Amino acid sequence: MEVNSKQQVNFGDRLVSPDEKTRRVGGVFSSVAGSYDVMNDLMSGGMHRIWKNRFVAKVKPRSGERVLDMAGGTGDIAFRMAARGATVTVSDINADMLAVGMERARKRGIDGLFWQQENAEKLIFADGSFDAYTIAFGIRNVTDIPAALREAHRVLKRGGRFYCLEFSTSEWPGFGEVYDRYSEHVIPRIGKAVAKDEESYRYLVESIRRFPRMEAFKSMIGEAGFTTTSVEPILGGLVAIHGGWKI
């Protein structure tokens, strides 16, 4: 369902107005931008690097292709795709996250990336601008997810592909329950100790729990106009790679 200004939406486990959610999510990522990559290593035991490599291998970026990496923030996905020859535009609604990414690219000597502050729900790019659209660990923080999916479809060329890497719910017996306890009790404490921000990481845990399960999100991608939709679960669905094509 499309979000309008009179509806309330979830900011983690709390109900707020759409505008307030957008503002609060912005505050979360401004707060954690400087420690974002360190926290990812600590929370996942470094496994996020494996997931991202697998994700980019699935996208198969090629030399000469134009790729929009939405919610690209600190550049992890963009760096991997640029290494394969793609021309990558890194977009994020949060200027602080983009600033971290640009500084990381400078230190690594990575040139040729385009950095642009954008709202995934209202992109300024023309129809059919990109060969591929990627978003990793960002879609669950969008206020109006169906609007973002429609925009992804709009800015892709015919034959373009959409790929999303996101947390979901593990369907492995017992594993999901163990991870729930870990995420609820441990991740906020790591956030407090490392990022000096327990509440932001409590929100991020809550946002994972609120995100649609794999098949439901796959259906949402189809409803946005994509065909040949797919989902590849990792760790039983704790993380999932979703895909779709614009035909």
Rank of each mutant, 00 (worst) to 15 (best):
L98V: 06
R213I: 04
V3E: 02
A95Q: 12
E121P: 11
D127N: 14
N141K: 01
I77Y: 05
G46D: 12
T87A: 12
I187G: 03
K157L: 13
K6G: 11
V59N: 06
K192E: 15
A240F: 02
T229W: 11
R106D: 09
R66W: 12
V90Q: 02
T143L: 08
V142K: 09
G236V: 00
S207D: 08
R150E: 13
V25Y: 08
G243Q: 10
S168M: 03
G12I: 06
S170D: 11
I145C: 03
R108T: 01
T87W: 12
F114E: 15
N119W: 07
R202E: 13
G64N: 01
A148C: 04
S5M: 15
V59I: 15
T134G: 09
D13M: 14
M70E: 12
E215H: 13
S35G: 00
P18H: 02
F11S: 06
Y201P: 02
I124D: 14
V186F: 03
L98K: 10
L235D: 03
F167C: 08
S5D: 14
G174W: 10
V178W: 12
V38D: 13
R62P: 04
N4H: 04
I145V: 15
L42I: 14
D96V: 10
I50D: 04
S63E: 08
G236L: 04
L113I: 11
V28I: 05
F211A: 00
A147D: 12
V3W: 01
A83K: 14
N94Y: 04
E232G: 09
L68T: 03
G45C: 09
A33K: 05
V155N: 03
F55C: 05
V25W: 08
E177M: 10
G27V: 02
M39S: 06
V205S: 02
A78F: 01
R213Y: 05
M1A: 13
R24G: 01
R158V: 15
G75P: 04
G176A: 03
G73S: 11
D19V: 10
S91R: 00
Y182T: 08
E166K: 13
T227V: 14
N94Q: 11
N4E: 09
V38H: 15
G243I: 02
E198M: 12
D92G: 02
E171L: 06
G160W: 10
I135S: 13
S207K: 08
D76V: 07
D37S: 07
G159V: 13
V32P: 01
